[in-house]
Nucleic acid binder design. Structure first.
Lengths: 256, 256
DNA sequence: ACGGTCGTTCGACGATGTCGAACGCCGTGC
DNA sequence: GCACGGCGTTCGACATCGTCGAACGACCGT
């Protein structure tokens, strides 16, 4: 691509492959996955090691994304006023509902989880901070679609991909759902993004009243819904209360 | 540096400057800070934008580290077995001690906080995940120095820099402290890294018995120490219990 | 209206990134 | 014990690509 720096694109591609692998990766795999000569891959990897973005195991020679990369991402994330302010209310929401809590913001064509509170029990859980959820097939995403025109433009550009048999992939049906979201103040996703998973989310507004994020809970459908898969209003109430509290922290509702 | 890719080094330097700035940064500042032509900085920034590592505000034109970078760092962090296993015990330690909890591992010449549990109250707190603490001037770091020869080599290479008037910057005195750490099983830092802050930490061992991390609590000196600034044995007991529990989760103490 | 600053674009040029070949090490099979 | 294949690493040649200075358009302040 003209005007872009190819070696930086290649280095980023290496990081993306490393991040997507469950285990440390050999150099030859990276080279072949990206169509690079081994010498080229080696030069890029040594540079990434020097700057702390990649670690290489001394014994096996395998490569992985280094914790050093976190030093870039985490402080930048914490500069985000939203996340700083959401943290306490997210903890409270998790305690109150006994569910996992996510906070997400629009990023490209998806909603990226910027904060994740584990459900307060000892079952194994997977951190999803940094993960991008589809806008049309997640509660967090529907909140953004309902209130943020940029989200709507992004969804129209990328289309409505099916994720489960319950995903809404019909624009009129989705529009009707979004009208309901604006009406009741929260969104639901019942096995639309992932089988066996339901979520409820509500909008977080900034000082000017714009929706800048969504906060929500996630769990098994029978933890959030009644026997006919209808979301429990009690859970939705906890979510909207938390969303309002975070919005107040961001200055929403204060006189100028 | 021969054998390294200069443009990847430059791109990494840009990210490091952006991460260290409290607010979004103009292109000309980045160019002058790194001694680059504006056209060069522009090409690197557009490439970083394309790969999602940098965002540019549409109105102001200012640049910042993008949430997209988190998508690389967070999943890679979660692959780290240590952090997955530490999360629950860290929450329990925070509840028990009413203090903030950190888990840290050796990274270069410092100890990087890979997990941070906020103290369970509503006072404002700052997330330090990703932050590197000095080895000799932090409880986490002293644990690693006491048990991990790589940490000792790194500290010898980088020296003992003073952080407060209480920082130990004398090798024999530090060595004596580290012998005590090995003896009692925990380390303390009383206003050595930061004025008004004290911390206690204990070693986390892997299946083979090697110390791979430290877990600790942090708070005001009077929350962890008695009137003569001596660490409270009760708090140290909670910390060593948590460290042992995490070590067991990592397989320490199991027969092969 | 004008001047200055900034982000962006463009083309020339040479510095650097890339690649193929080779090397050393390690593990495996015979 | 030896040979062989695979892998990470090194090196030098070459041409591709990254860099920079100049210029442009937009915006802002005076």
């Amino acid at each position: 691509m003209p005007g872009r720096v190819q070696s930086v694109e290649r280095a980023a591609a290496i990081l993306q492959v490393l991040a997507s692998e469950a285990q440390p990766t050999p150099l030859h795999h990276l080279a072949s996955a990206l169509g690079l000569a081994k010498g080229t891959a080696h030069g890029l990897l040594q540079t990434l090691k020097d700057v702390g973005f990649v670690d290489q195991d001394e014994e096996s020679g395998l490569y992985a994304v280094g914790v050093g990369l976190l030093q870039l991402a985490a402080p930048a994330l914490d500069h985000n006023e939203l996340r700083s302010r959401a943290i306490n209310w997210a903890d409270a929401l998790a305690s109150r509902t006994h569910l996992a809590v996510h906070v997400g913001t629009l990023e490209g064509a998806g909603v990226v989880v910027v904060h994740h509170v584990f459900r307060p029990d000892s079952r194994p859980q997977t951190l999803v901070t940094g993960t991008s959820f589809p806008l049309h097939a997640s509660a967090l995403g529907k909140v953004l679609l309902a209130h943020d025109p940029r989200a709507m433009r992004a969804a129209m550009a990328s289309g409505l991909e099916s994720h489960t048999y319950r995903t809404v992939v019909d624009w009129p049906a989705l529009q009707r759902q979004l009208a309901d979201v604006r009406d009741v103040g929260w969104a639901a996703d019942v096995e639309e993004r992932e089988p066996g998973v339901a979520a409820l989310a509500a909008p977080v507004r900034d000082r000017s009243g714009y929706v800048v994020a969504a906060i929500g809970v996630e769990g098994a459908p029978d933890e959030l819904c009644d026997a006919r898969s209808r979301p429990l209003v009690s859970v939705a109430g906890h979510v909207t209360d938390a969303a309002r509290a975070v919005s107040r922290e961001l200055g929403h509702g204060r006189r100028p």
